[in-house]
Amino acid sequence: MAVIGTGKMGADHVRRLHEVISGARVAAVADIEPERAKSLAATIEECTAYTEPAAAMASQEVDAVLVASPGPAHEAALVEALDRGLPVLCEKPMTPDTASSLRILEAEQRLGRRRIQVGFMRRYDVEYAKLKGLLDGGELGRALMLHQRHRNLAMPPGFTDEMLITSSVSHEVDATRWLLDEEIAAVTVHKPRATSLAPDGMNDPQFVLLETVSGALVDVEIFGHCGYGYQVQAEAVCERGTVRIGDEQGLRVSVEGRWGGHVPPDYVERFEDAYDREVQAWVDATRRGEVTGPSAWDGYAASAVCEAGVVSQRQGGRVEVELVERPDLYR
């Protein structure tokens, strides 16, 4: 394995591959910050640090690539991997905009086979998988509405209004497409009054309304500075019942006149098991010569919805999502 990007997510994946996942080893890491890459590589036997993704992928020791660098750097890394025929697990967003996502689709189609899996890890979360199974089973009838909440303790410095959509709501976009098994036709972004905990200039929280092609309505509350922890919830309202996931689990403690439990501080802890399942499934499929998870089409479709969301965020009103015809490779 080569891991591209050794920041928070990349370092966590290196740890995961080294300590948790079977069937793969980290042979190379790459980062534009040489010392960070060298420091991480030093924790793993026979792992080489690089500053250029292309150099890491050129290593004779590398058979597959995990891309965890910032979104704007993904296109170049994906093109390099496709040129070398290497299977790739790419963290979301696949690319930051639809134009670059379309270029990736075209490059993969020229290759004639799927090589890219996009890192929408919620599909591997136990609760999300149970929700998907229940909706697919038909016991509750058609899903009419989907309520989703995505709350963060706080966003890192430099986080923008646009990133609330492209970096955060993108997860709900993919979850919607996957759970309801249809595309999203339009997006409307509403901005309630901002919390005093948000930095100046950020409209936080925001309320996003998604409309699917069949007419189901999906609302997403994105709250980047809720102040108490990381929380993700979803509730499907169906013809014959409702189902909700994301309620806090684990220990419930009563002490000193209070009762309560633990709210995780971030996505790394909340979705640790989902990341483990995702990467293990990808490694297993790669060893079989297959690609089974979210495809480059899923990455493109999410980018298109988020792009429409950013337009609505800036200009107001309902914005329709424009998608190209789905290529046969992704049917």
Rank of each mutant, 00 (worst) to 15 (best):
A2N: 04
I4V: 14
G5S: 08
G7W: 07
A11W: 01
D12A: 15
V14I: 09
L17R: 05
E19K: 11
E19V: 07
E19Q: 14
I21V: 15
I21W: 00
I21G: 02
S22A: 14
A27L: 05
A30I: 07
P34N: 09
P34R: 08
A41K: 01
E45I: 11
T48F: 11
Y50L: 04
A56D: 02
A58E: 12
Q60V: 11
V62G: 06
S69D: 05
P70E: 07
G71Q: 04
A76R: 12
E80V: 02
E91R: 06
T98Y: 05
T98P: 09
S100F: 05
E106N: 14
R114H: 08
R123M: 10
D125L: 06
L131T: 01
L135H: 05
L135I: 12
L140E: 03
R142Y: 10
M155Y: 11
F159P: 03
D161P: 13
E162F: 03
M163H: 04
L164G: 15
S168D: 12
E182F: 08
H190L: 15
K191H: 15
L197N: 09
A198P: 00
P199M: 13
D200T: 13
M202C: 06
N203Q: 15
D204T: 03
L209N: 03
T212P: 00
G215V: 06
G215R: 06
G215E: 11
D219K: 01
V220S: 04
H225F: 14
G229K: 10
Q231S: 14
Q231M: 15
R240T: 06
T242Y: 12
V243Y: 14
D247Q: 14
Q249L: 13
Q249H: 12
Q249R: 11
V255N: 11
G257E: 06
R258W: 05
G260Q: 09
V268I: 15
V268M: 13
E269I: 15
E269C: 09
Y275M: 08
S295H: 08
W297Y: 09
D298W: 02
A301N: 05
A302L: 05
A304E: 02
A304S: 10
V305L: 06
G309D: 02
V311A: 12
S312W: 06
G316H: 09
G317Y: 10
Y330R: 02
R331P: 00
